Simulated scan of single mutants.
Amino acid sequence: MSTRDVQVRMCELAVSTREDARILRATLGSCVGIGLLWRARGTSGLAHCLLPEPVASVRAVPAERHGQEAKYVVDALPALISMMGAQAAPEGEIEAVLAGGANMMHHRTTIHEPIGELNVRMAQQLLAHARVRVIHTDVGGECGRQLTIDCGQQDYAVRRFSRPG
């Protein structure tokens, strides 16, 4: 990896510009990666989200979550838009790429739906509510993915990989 490469780890956000020409990468299983491209301004961002939203007891204490803006999808999208300075971006200018949300466990539980599916559904709902156009989705199934955002080229790529047998 070169110094231009930024590994966006679980619960992290990263933003870069065309001038910085960084490459943002997230390796995803059940986590969902949300990549945003604002081509008109040459700004891109990537969030690596662990869970869709906090449980009620955690939501009551937001100060404790400072520094974990990407742990939850519900916090990550507004934080990423804010870091990009895109709160007032014209509708349709920001594009999104979603990847991840896999079911990495072979068994299903009756407690809740697979976390990957919940992550993806929450991301899709929030993007629709924010009127951000999703241009590419590669989610679900049982394979891991790597989402790459090339900020210099204002482009993205998703690579799939399967877990060892």
Score class of each variant (00 low, 15 high):
8 V>A: 05
9 R>A: 13
10 M>T: 14
11 C>S: 13
14 A>L: 05
15 V>E: 00
16 S>E: 06
17 T>S: 15
18 R>Y: 08
19 E>N: 08
21 A>N: 10
21 A>W: 06
22 R>K: 10
23 I>E: 02
23 I>A: 06
24 L>S: 02
25 R>H: 09
26 A>R: 00
27 T>L: 11
27 T>E: 10
31 C>T: 05
32 V>F: 02
34 I>N: 01
37 L>I: 14
38 W>N: 04
39 R>G: 02
40 A>N: 10
40 A>G: 07
42 G>P: 01
44 S>L: 11
47 A>N: 05
50 L>W: 12
52 P>K: 03
54 P>F: 06
56 A>T: 13
58 V>C: 07
58 V>R: 09
63 A>I: 11
64 E>I: 15
65 R>S: 15
65 R>T: 14
65 R>L: 14
65 R>V: 13
66 H>I: 10
67 G>W: 06
69 E>I: 04
70 A>E: 01
71 K>G: 09
71 K>C: 14
71 K>A: 14
72 Y>T: 07
74 V>P: 08
74 V>G: 09
77 L>T: 02
77 L>E: 03
78 P>F: 04
79 A>V: 00
80 L>I: 08
82 S>W: 04
83 M>S: 11
85 G>F: 02
86 A>S: 15
87 Q>E: 11
91 E>M: 12
94 I>F: 00
96 A>E: 03
96 A>Y: 03
98 L>D: 00
98 L>F: 03
99 A>E: 03
99 A>I: 04
100 G>E: 05
101 G>W: 03
102 A>V: 07
103 N>P: 08
103 N>S: 13
104 M>T: 13
105 M>N: 10
106 H>R: 14
107 H>L: 15
108 R>Q: 14
110 T>L: 15
110 T>A: 12
110 T>C: 07
111 I>F: 08
113 E>I: 12
113 E>L: 13
115 I>W: 03
116 G>R: 03
117 E>F: 10
118 L>N: 07
118 L>S: 11
119 N>M: 05
119 N>F: 04
119 N>C: 15
119 N>H: 07
120 V>K: 01
120 V>W: 01
122 M>H: 04
123 A>R: 00
123 A>G: 06
123 A>H: 00
123 A>S: 09
123 A>Q: 00
125 Q>C: 15
126 L>D: 03
127 L>S: 06
127 L>P: 06
129 H>F: 11
130 A>C: 12
130 A>T: 05
131 R>E: 11
131 R>W: 05
135 I>R: 09
135 I>P: 08
136 H>R: 06
136 H>M: 08
138 D>W: 02
138 D>H: 03
139 V>A: 04
139 V>Y: 02
140 G>C: 00
142 E>F: 08
142 E>K: 10
142 E>Y: 09
145 R>Y: 04
146 Q>T: 14
147 L>Y: 02
148 T>M: 09
150 D>S: 13
152 G>A: 05
152 G>V: 07
153 Q>Y: 10
153 Q>R: 12
